[in-house]
Nucleic acid binder design. Sequence first.
DNA 1: ACATACGGAATGAACGTTCATTCCTTTTAT
DNA 2: ATAAAAGGAATGAACGTTCATTCCGTATGT
Lengths: 191, 191
Amino acid sequence: MSKLDKRDEVVKAALELIAEHGFHGAPMAMIANRAGVGAGTIYRYFENKEVLIAELYRDLEERLFPVILEKYDQEKPIREKFMHLGTALLRYFIENPLDFRYLEQFHNSPFGVEHRRDKILGEKEGCDIFRDLFEDGISQQVLKELPLVILFALAFGPILAVARDHILGFVTLDEGLIIATIEACWDGIRR
Amino acid sequence: MSKLDKRDEVVKAALELIAEHGFHGAPMAMIANRAGVGAGTIYRYFENKEVLIAELYRDLEERLFPVILEKYDQEKPIREKFMHLGTALLRYFIENPLDFRYLEQFHNSPFGVEHRRDKILGEKEGCDIFRDLFEDGISQQVLKELPLVILFALAFGPILAVARDHILGFVTLDEGLIIATIEACWDGIRR
DNA sequence: ACATACGGAATGAACGTTCATTCCTTTTAT
DNA sequence: ATAAAAGGAATGAACGTTCATTCCGTATGT
């Protein structure tokens, strides 16, 4: 197995185990075992567990963003752009349950809260597609005049909840339900 | 300190520490310490940590339900009933951040998932006020014709997200914003 | 009224386990 | 032959839980 293969196996094993059992349910020894690698070997690629966890999250974002931005057309009306992003996001979660579960574990951990704090307070980034969309929507009077954070909650709260319910088997989402759900989210934020 | 006082101190300390640091960030020794009690004393009142955690959750529900059902009028129209429950719930979370944070920790733990699985699969309980309301709303064609689980997600997803953001200091909710948020949730579920 | 005996509540040091990390030996590649 | 990579046993810190002991309020006997 080559050097990069090993790193990859560690990443894959860690993602699977942490997604399924949480950070505390995925000991390094177990990750090493599933990766087919010695425990010490992990530390040749990641300084420690915390670094591994953060790296996993970065990888995840880098996989997610291109997918939901595929065929995203800045020129379309706001409603259409929201529908595109919302359905793409929900579809991604359903098709990649490991990624979704990892995302949840991360968000509900101290790392995740810190990460979000940085993101919300450092408002200068022009790279946040959702912020741009919502700010546009407010100034064009298409969206409710509410603080951005609340619009985010109205849009993403249900998406995350529905994705979780689907993955846990509490509901089965088909394409029709996905669209209906995102339309309902739109009803929540639109003026 | 009397017998009941000690039990109470343990419950209070455990709620605080777990709400703030999560289950794994609140060792029994730390709980005992904050409660002003010996480590072994906890085990006179709770068989083990798991039982303590479950008991804390039951206590929480028993505090929460009476509050949101206060002045709840079954005869009012569905929209009004939803607004009452939604605003009461959000207000409770804001006024009792420890309870909210504990609820989140619980829900994001294996206990919470199991608890929810039991609740969703055992559909027979007539005591679930929200289920009744939503079923009424669907049959009266006031609400969107979506699976109950999705309506729950649309209604509670944003409420939980907004409460979290308020408690973490990402937004400051006043009475006006509370009402506006719940109205937006209503827009999401109403037909 | 006082001293003594009793029993359950409380204690916290100690135990066994689990975990992240390190360290040293062995393997592999050049 | 040498250096880098990999392996996994060893390490020590942290945890939940246990248990022999202490403490204290009450009952008993004088």
